[in-house]
């Protein structure tokens, strides 16, 4: 065993966790093929990856805030509000799509920035701030749309947005191209920019980071704004994918995005982890659900298996070092 270890590359524990997360995703794919032959068919894998990309987008934002020891519980209704704003402001017209997309992303950024301001300036715990924000957005959406009965509420997403979610370029779905761009950008931002290094520094030791010249408040606001941006972006992709917005469409993304981040090897207390692992975590969770669906498992088995697998993966490689 020791002799074999010698040939393995020397990686930091966090980097190993990224490897584990990717291995877990591949193993889950193989299990899927074993229990349901044909699972690894190109069309099926593509579908799974596209669905995983929606989780992956939300998890990108969640990853940013968890890296500084925060959390974003406002994701479900920011996503939902984003989907509704896109559909209602565009009225299904391509001509209005650019403005609608800008408005939706702007909304996400604005809500996220308010979250960040509450955490950074008023010292409100992230759990409380974002939980309250989730309720605030939910109430506003329900109130202003009259419980989603407004005339514009049934509007379809503009064709151009729908084709973004369904179309393909060079044989690869557009949604995956978008995700690849996000993976490259987020990974690059986190590992080679000043912004990224400051994020890790703030997550590891806020005091030391501030003493080293990091603008903790500004950075916190930007990171929460990024989380709002990605939740709104996921809302755009989802309304494009499904055609119409609906109430509660963001709810499944709250716990799933957090699970993807921690399975991806990011420390929930902040300071350590990579987005590549998070992307693998999003794939793992989606594959898991697909396998259980392919096996025609009843709802309750799916729910239990989901929990058991998350805990098993965490016990396998997500444990804290001995104190």
């Amino acid at each position: 065993m020791k002799a074999a270890m010698k040939y393995l590359p020397r990686l930091a524990p966090e980097s190993w966790r990224v490897v584990y997360a990717i291995v877990a995703a591949i193993v889950l794919f193989l299990i899927g093929e074993a229990v349901h032959p044909g699972f690894l068919g190109l069309a099926n894998v593509e579908t799974i990856l596209v669905i995983a990309s929606f989780v992956g987008l939300v998890a990108a934002g969640q990853c940013f805030v968890i890296l500084i020891g925060g959390i974003d519980l406002s994701v479900p209704w920011v996503l939902n509000a984003g989907a509704i704003v896109l559909a209602t402001t565009s009225m299904g017209l391509d001509a209005r799509a650019p403005l609608a997309v800008a408005a939706t992303l702007g909304l996400g950024i604005a809500v996220g920035a308010v979250n960040g301001a509450g955490v950074a300036w008023f010292g409100i715990p992230a759990v409380v701030m974002t939980l309250a924000m989730n309720g605030i957005i939910e109430g506003l959406v329900l109130g202003f749309t009259g419980g989603f009965t407004c005339a514009a509420c049934s509007a379809y997403a503009p064709p151009v947005v729908q084709s973004l979610a369904h179309g393909a370029l060079l044989g690869v779905p557009d949604a995956l191209w978008l995700w690849v761009v996000v993976i490259v950008l987020v990974s690059a931002v986190l590992s080679i920019t000043r912004f990224g290094r400051a994020t890790y520094a703030l997550g590891n030791n806020p005091r030391a980071a501030v003493l080293a010249g990091v603008d903790a408040r500004g950075l916190t606001i930007m990171l929460y704004a990024a989380s709002g941006f990605f939740a709104a972006l996921a809302g755009i992709m989802l309304v494009g994918f499904g055609g119409q917005a609906s109430l509660g469409m963001g709810d499944p993304y709250l716990f799933t995005s957090i699970a993807a981040v921690v399975i991806g090897g990011v420390n929930i207390l902040g300071g350590r982890g990579h987005y590549l692992g998070v992307a693998a975590g999003a794939v793992s969770l989606t594959v898991l659900v697909s396998v259980l669906l392919a096996l025609n498992m009843p709802d309750y088995v799916r729910s239990i298996a989901y929990g058991v697998v998350i805990l098993a993966l965490l016990l396998a490689y997500g444990r804290e070092t001995e104190t």
């Binding site: 716990f255 921690v262 729910s303 239990i304 058991v308 998350i310 805990l311 965490l314 804290e320």
Partner: peptide
Amino acid sequence: GRLQPIVVTLGTLSIFQGLAIRVLP
């Protein structure tokens, strides 16, 4: 298990919800 409470209870939440639906579909 030396796991963070928030992730442990996220996993067990799913398990307990599944058991509840099994008991009373």
